[in-house]
Design a protein around this nucleic acid. Structure first.
Length: 575
DNA sequence: TGTGCCTGCCC
DNA sequence: ATTCTGC
DNA sequence: GCAGAATGGGCAGGCACA
């Protein structure tokens, strides 16, 4: 299939907001494509080259894409960046630049979907010395053969911002529409996707073999399963109101691992289905020793602990296990527990369809002996008071909060249905760390935010007469607030960094440090990039910062101080 | 050989 | 991760 | 309530270049 058809379909999809219409358009596109191309088209629609567990990543994003555009158009990188800043969309910039060229370069050839996908694959697999040049050249080759609209699609793909308004759910619906004319097949297609994590494979199977093959998908070791996700609620009362009696589990602030075992072979997958076995030889060994089934798929949270005190360590420590080299040493330095919390498959039995109570019981029977793998801390609760008490206990033990799970629910991927609900300290009113920080700069923003001229704020705490950065804020703004803030900050704009601001970061615009905003965060972390309370090369930053409100009523003098920030950091249970 | 930039992926 | 918005 | 698109801090790895 010609790539132009796909690029034109992208244009149509982007212009629409009705998912029903998008679904119809997509179904038409798929039915017009040759069977052999279906998988590739689905991957391109998802913005990927292959399913995540294949580990095929472009290794090219914004900067290298700008390099390639510079090569193709003869423009300077600076000029391209300037245009990008205006459009908020590097794809839009690519399109504009190619429209300025009167015609395609001499000897340009028609791009096909296969050619584009193949070049992406070659970009992804280029490595070693000279690979950056090779990647840029492969991308430039595509762009020089592309029409403006094709270049836009290619650029958006490469920068990971397709912005079609089309996600997995819409693609699944469109597959159903393509074959049945309605959503009647969506449920079964979704299940096949959940069990394989490979939408291209699902689509190809549907087109080649039909629904009987889709229904045959089942949990299989070494095919990662899409993880169940949790909703959030702010109080124990609301959670009990929703679930009634439920199982409350400790929420460990670590890495979510999906462990697959068949005989002696063990593989481990991340929450987003990346294969990460090599990072956890200790977990592999423990799975071989402690899991009393030939075949099994289960999930747990890996978290590091201090061997001397036995206390759990901060996420920043656990994440250091996420590495390729020097695993042996890190394994000793950062010992882990794996707190198992769910079971999807064991020795031929599909547990994804059975009630959580039964899964949990089977999991308990599956894990044997003392070792790295333990069951997550859990207790059945009937009342908000019981849930609150367990929550307190968990937080005091250094956990993030609790997860409440419907004992009757099957294992359902995705965030729907409120089968799992999480409760964190920061969700509750008055319990979270809230700071009044001073805006010292702002960023222009991309995509939708471009129209407001504001993507985020650079903010700081006060230290005597100086302002030291503690967080960028990029979420929590309503569109009205974006507009309002941009109008207000434009008036405070100054041409360069004020002398009394300490910052390692360079926002798009500096402002006089006057406006105060209230920001909520889950915790404070040590930071190399922020200057607040800096000692020995590390400052403090906010984890998960979000805007709560604009405090026109407060002056910068009344903002949270560096000292207060340090106090908040010191009072945390883990650090 | 060291360092800084870029990228991808954890949360 | 959190949050907002159109459907 | 779902689905999608904005955005955060911070870790390691890989490459280019001084």
């Amino acid at each position: 299939m010609e790539f132009a058809r796909l690029a034109e379909a992208f244009e149509k999809l982007e212009a629409k907001t009705s998912r029903l219409e998008m679904t119809a358009d997509l179904a038409e596109l798929l039915n017009g494509a040759p069977e052999s191309q279906i998988g590739k088209i689905i991957y391109l629609l998802q913005g990927v080259i292959a399913p995540p567990h294949r580990g095929i990543e472009l290794g090219v994003a914004e900067k290298l894409c700008i390099d390639a555009l510079a090569t193709v158009t003869g423009q300077t990188e600076r000029a391209i960046e300037a245009s990008y800043r205006k459009t908020g969309d590097l794809g839009g910039t690519a399109r504009l630049l190619l429209e300025e060229r009167k015609q395609r370069s001499l000897g340009a050839s028609q791009l096909s979907v296969a050619k584009v996908h193949d070049n992406f694959y070659r970009i992804a697999t280029a490595s070693g010395q000279g690979s950056q040049t090779a990647k840029t050249r492969l991308l430039a080759e595509l762009l020089s053969n592309a029409s403006p609209i094709e270049a836009k699609a290619i650029t958006r793909f490469v920068t990971g911002r397709l912005r079609l308004g089309v996600g997995e759910a819409t693609i699944i619906d469109s597959l159903s529409y393509a074959k049945a004319g309605d959503k009647s097949l969506s449920k079964e297609l979704e299940r096949a996707f959940n069990l394989s994590s490979d939408l291209g494979l699902v689509a190809e199977t549907l087109y080649r073999e039909g629904m009987h093959a889709i229904r045959a998908f089942k949990p299989t070791p070494f095919n990662p399963i899409r993880p169940a996700l949790a909703e959030r609620l702010p109080s124990a009362a609301e959670i009990i109101g929703k679930l009634g009696t439920c199982l409350a589990e400790g929420k460990y602030d670590g890495l979510r691992l999906q462990v697959h075992k068949s005989g002696d072979r063990v593989e481990i997958y991340s929450r987003r289905q990346e294969k990460i076995t090599h990072m956890f030889p200790d977990v592999v060994a423990a799975a071989r020793r402690q899991i009393k089934a030939k075949d099994a798929i289960f999930e747990g949270e890996a978290i590091s602990y201090d061997e001397e005190t036995g206390r759990f360590q901060a996420f920043q420590e656990t994440i250091k296990r996420k590495r390729k080299h020097g695993i042996g040493a890190k394994q000793k330095e950062i010992p882990l527990y794996l707190f198992a919390f769910d079971l999807m498959y064991a020795d031929g039995k599909d547990y994804t369809t059975v009630a959580f109570a039964e899964r949990r019981a089977a999991l308990k029977a599956l894990v044997s002996g003392k070792g790295l793998i333990e069951l997550s801390k859990a207790v059945a609760v009937k009342t908000p008071a019981e849930l609150d008490a367990f929550f307190e206990e968990c937080v005091n033990a250094g956990l993030e909060g609790v997860m409440a799970k419907d004992l009757k629910a099957p294992y359902v991927a995705g965030s729907r249905k409120f089968a799992w609900i999480k409760l964190k300290k920061s969700y509750a009113e008055g319990l979270a760390d809230t700071l009044d920080v001073v805006v010292v700069g702002y960023y222009y923003g991309k995509g939708k935010r471009t129209e407001f001229g504001l993507g985020g704020l650079l903010t700081a705490v006060r230290a005597e007469q100086r302002f030291k950065t503690i967080a960028k804020i990029g979420t929590g703004f309503s569109e009205a607030q974006l507009q309002e803030l941009r109008d207000y900050l434009t008036k405070l704009k100054v041409p360069k960094k004020p002398d009394n601001v300490d910052s390692l970061l360079e926002p798009h615009a500096w402002v006089k440090p006057e406006l105060v905003v209230e920001v909520k965060a889950d915790e404070l972390t040590q930071s190399e990039m922020h200057t607040a309370a800096k000692t020995g090369g590390r400052g403090l930053a906010l984890r998960f910062p979000r805007l709560m409100r604009i405090r026109y009523d407060k002056s910068a003098k009344e903002a949270t101080t560096e000292k207060e920030a340090r106090g908040l950091y010191e009072s945390q249970k883990t650090h």
